[in-house]
C-alpha cells in the first residue's frame, strides 16, 4: 500500500473568522473538503484512500476553539480543539467532570492524545474490519457501501437505501460520558451557530453518522453543571493501550442531597452504529437491583452486534452487564 499523500490542497486558516470565511467559500465553490484538527483519525483514512478530499482544512490555526472554562452558571465549556491530553491534565475537568478526563485518558496512545482533540473524538469515524483496510483488501472483498460500493460484508442482504445502510461501529471513548453528562455541542457554520444536545447528534448509520452539515464544525462542547451526578467509564479492549473500545460502558448515578440514588443512566459505545444512552429513574422504595437488572437488559438489547471485532459478538454483549455492575461498584452503589 502506498501511504504517500498527494492530490489535495492544504489550508490552515488563522483564526475563527478566517475559518468561517474559508468554509463558506469552499461550500460555495462546491469543493470536496475535509476538516481535520488533530488529524489522527483522518490521516490513516487518507493514507488508506478511504477519503479523497480536494482540500484539507486544518483547524490548528483556530486558537479560539481551544481551551477550557467554567461559565457563570457552572457550565463547563470546552473548545473542540482541546487536545485530549490537555483534557486529561486539566484541573478544571478533573474537578468538575473526572469521568471525562478518565475517558479521554483511555483513547488510543499518549502520542495520539497529545494531538487528537475532543471534537475529533466525538467525530471519530465509525469503524469496520471490512472498511478500515487498504485499497487492495477492499478490492479483494468488493468495496462496501461506506466506500461507495454496493455490498455490506456484515449484513450480506443489505441493499442500497435501506437504513442503517452501514453497520460500521461507533468507537468514541468520550461520547458515552458526555451523553450521561447531557452535553451540548455548539456547531459553527457560516456566520452562525446552533446548539445541539449530544443525544440528538448521532444517527443510526455507519455512514451518515451524525447531523453535522457540510461546512459545519464543532466549536465547543458545553457540559451543564450536574450536582449529584457521578459517572464512571470503562472499556473492553484486548490491551491497555492503543485499542479502540470493543465495548465502552459509561454508567451514571444521580443522587439526592442525602445520597440516595435517584437515577441510573447507561451509555454504550463500540457496539452499534451510534452510542446508546438510557436513563432509569429509581422510584422511592424501588428495588435498586431491579432497576439495575432493567438497565442491563435494556443495554443488552441496544444494538444488533456483529462479528466485526477481535471479540465475538456474543461475548461483547455478555460483557455489558458485567461492566455495568463493575461501574456501579466503583460508584459505591
Amino acid at each position: 500500500m502506498n501511504t504517500q499523500l498527494s492530490g489535495f490542497e492544504f489550508e490552515r486558516p488563522a483564526g475563527l473568522p478566517a475559518l468561517r470565511a474559508l468554509l463558506t467559500r469552499l461550500g460555495r465553490e462546491q469543493r470536496r473538503f475535509a476538516v481535520a484538527a488533530g488529524g489522527t483519525d483522518l490521516m490513516p483514512q487518507l493514507k488508506q484512500r478511504l477519503v479523497a478530499p480536494e482540500v484539507l482544512v486544518s483547524l490548528n490555526g483556530v486558537g479560539e476553539l481551544a481551551g477550557i472554562a467554567v461559565q457563570d452558571d457552572g457550565t463547563l465549556r470546552i473548545g473542540a480543539l482541546t487536545r485530549l491530553a490537555d483534557l486529561v491534565d486539566s484541573t478544571l475537568v478533573r474537578q468538575h467532570q473526572p469521568a471525562l478526563a478518565a475517558a479521554a485518558g483511555r483513547v488510543a496512545s499518549p502520542q495520539i492524545r497529545n494531538r487528537a482533540t475532543l471534537g475529533g473524538n466525538l467525530l471519530v469515524n465509525n469503524r469496520c474490519i471490512y472498511v478500515n483496510q487498504s485499497p487492495l483488501n477492499r478490492t479483494v472483498h468488493a468495496p462496501c457501501f461506506k466506500v461507495d460500493g454496493d455490498v455490506c460484508h456484515i449484513v450480506k442482504s443489505a441493499v442500497r437505501g435501506q437504513l442503517p445502510q452501514c453497520q460500521a461501529r461507533f468507537v468514541s471513548d468520550t461520547a458515552p460520558v458526555l451523553l450521561l453528562l447531557e452535553a451540548r455541542l455548539v456547531l459553527l457554520r457560516g456566520r452562525g451557530e446552533r446548539r445541539v444536545p449530544l443525544r440528538r447528534f448521532y444517527r443510526n448509520d455507519g455512514m451518515e453518522r451524525n447531523v453535522l452539515r457540510p461546512g459545519e464544525v464543532i466549536g465547543w462542547i458545553e457540559i451543564p453543571p450536574a450536582t449529584g451526578l457521578q459517572v464512571d467509564y470503562d472499556k473492553l479492549a484486548v490491551r491497555n493501550a492503543l485499542d479502540f473500545p470493543s465495548l465502552g460502558v459509561a454508567v451514571g448515578v444521580r443522587r439526592d442531597a442525602a445520597g440516595q440514588p435517584l437515577e441510573l443512566s447507561v451509555a454504550l459505545t463500540g457496539l452499534g452504529t451510534h452510542p446508546g444512552c438510557w436513563r432509569h429513574a429509581i422510584a422511592d422504595g424501588a428495588s435498586l437491583s431491579k432497576v439495575v437488572a432493567k438497565a442491563c437488559a435494556r443495554a443488552g438489547k441496544f444494538a444488533t452486534t456483529y462479528q466485526q471485532d477481535f471479540f465475538p459478538r456474543d461475548y461483547r454483549k455478555k460483557m455489558i452487564g458485567v461492566f455495568i455492575h463493575r461501574s456501579l461498584r466503583r460508584l459505591g452503589v
Binding site: I129, N137, F310
Partner: peptide, 13 residues
C-alpha cells in the same frame, strides 16, 4: 483471514 485475505494486517488489529 477473510476469503483468503489477511484482515488484520497492522499493529492496531
Amino acid at each position: 483471514h477473510y476469503d483468503g485475505a489477511v484482515q488484520n494486517a497492522g499493529f492496531l488489529e
